[in-house]
Design a protein around this nucleic acid. Structure first.
Length: 416
DNA sequence: TCTGGGGTCCTAGGACCC
DNA sequence: TCTGGGGTCCTAGGACCC
């Protein structure tokens, strides 16, 4: 049976969701009708554009550029701060609606998903008409628009959904590749990013078609395995299955932040690391895994970045263990240069079916577990602020730093 | 383009073993 | 013993995605 895959992509997701929410709560102005953007707060030095309205496009506002640069291009740009909890709820509502049509849904990011429609064709008939119904229902019932790509694999469906924006449906079946995909600039291809693009250009490759018809051996020798991968993509060859999201295993958990002010003392740095470890630790325990590896990375005020990582002798999910290891790594690495950004990440998980006790300090381990459990419960039931370690009081550093909590679901993978 | 925060995967080089 | 080759593990860094 020939596969039928949908890729569904929310148009200007954060901005659309923000606009819908505001309209539902009494605002009369629809952010989508004016030059507007969702972005960070420059005072806190988180100042970049995360999403922009269609009406901001003529001003050449780019996702990822600084608010300052955006204001220079468009002084009357309306910028609103992000609200990730709202976006997660909006995303969930969309997936719930789509799940009425197929249970084979892979959430790829907060605003994108793949749907395997292969076995639904019998039930619903023509995929294009069903995609149309889904798109119109999302618009009518949830208030925002999506673009849908339809093909026989995930890569082609993803390329297709990008072809008609906003509010479009496009097919890109293998027989349509030469006509619809090959004329596109090679930088539009999935997995051809900022670094690869100039390398391909140097080989005389400008369009996806150029890449598709290039000698794969030469690509392999210059770009290694990635060269082979993108050559396959350019030819529409991709066979990964739509993995139901609840089957995706999470590989790492990390939090990081750009601080409102440069950090230049060990004491402050450690406090910042503790704040990040609180969030990482809580998310780790929530996942049910133990970690075997902790990594610390930072960026200096001059934007130099480095990191360090180290394995645990015994896997753990204690905030305290992660924190102590992270500080030890940090102390080895840091030479006192003022810091702009700090991050902590844990990975190499193993199952936590049984509690693996340290033979020599069993009591400590038990005590740590209980403490973490009590804190997690209180924070879940009330507010994260319920429990604050004394060291944070009057420090100017939040007791917990980083996002993606409760409704955490595994997103993304660099390969489809 | 003065540049966020969440991820995954790949590669290179050194240590160590046989 | 100045010297081979293969395998594995570890770490740092860089590529890509949204």
């Amino acid at each position: 049976m020939k596969s039928v895959i949908f890729h569904i992509d929310v148009n200007s997701a954060y901005l659309s969701w923000e606009a819908v929410y505001r309209l539902q709560h009494g605002e009369t102005l629809d952010l989508r009708t004016i030059p507007s953007a969702v972005g960070g707060d420059p005072v806190k030095r988180h100042g970049i554009i995360l999403a922009k309205s269609h009406a901001a496009k003529p001003y050449k506002i780019q996702t990822g550029e600084s608010l300052m640069a955006a204001y220079q291009k468009c002084p009357h740009l309306k910028v609103v701060p992000p609200r990730y909890d709202l976006y997660l709820r909006s995303s969930n509502a969309m997936v719930e609606l789509i799940s009425e049509y197929s249970d084979a849904i892979q959430r790829y990011s907060i605003d994108e998903c793949f749907v395997d429609f292969t076995h639904m064709v019998k039930l619903y008939g023509d995929p294009f008409s069903t995609a149309f119904i889904i798109k119109e229902r999302i618009k009518k019932e949830l208030g925002f628009t999506v673009s849908i790509g339809i093909s026989s694999n995930k890569l082609l469906a993803k390329v297709a959904s990008d072809l008609k924006k906003p509010d479009g449906i496009t097919t890109l079946f293998p027989e349509e590749i030469a006509e619809k995909m090959w004329p596109l600039p090679v930088g539009d291809l999935f997995m051809v990013g900022r670094a690869t693009y100039p390398k391909l250009n140097a080989l005389g490759i400008e369009t996806i078609g150029d890449l598709a018809n290039y000698d794969v051996e030469i690509l392999k020798s210059t770009l290694k395995s990635q060269g082979v991968l993108i050559w396959h993509y350019a030819n529409g060859i991709e066979t990964s299955p739509v993995k139901k999201s609840n089957h995706l295993a999470i590989k790492s958990i990390g939090n990081s932040t750009t601080m409102p002010f440069d950090i230049d003392t060990t004491k402050e740095a450690h406090l910042m690391i503790l704040s990040l470890c609180e969030m990482v630790g809580m998310r780790l325990r929530d996942s049910g895994y133990l970690t075997r590896l902790v990594a610390v990375h930072f960026k200096t005020h001059t934007f130099n970045s480095t990191g360090h990582q180290r394995k645990f002798d015994t896997p753990t999910d204690h905030t305290r263990d992660i924190y102590e290891e992270a500080c030890a790594l940090f102390d080895v690495l840091w030479d006192g240069t003022p810091l702009r950004h700090i991050g902590v990440r844990v990975s190499e998980f193993c199952e936590n079916d049984f509690v693996q006790l340290h033979i020599f300090n069993e009591k400590d381990t038990q005590k740590n577990r209980k403490l973490d459990a009590v804190i997690d419960t209180l924070r879940a039931r009330f507010e994260p602020k319920t429990i604050i370690r004394g060291s944070f009081i009057n420090s100017g550093i939040k007791p917990m730093t980083g996002g993606v909590g409760e409704d955490d679901f595994p997103l993304m993978s660099s390969i489809l």
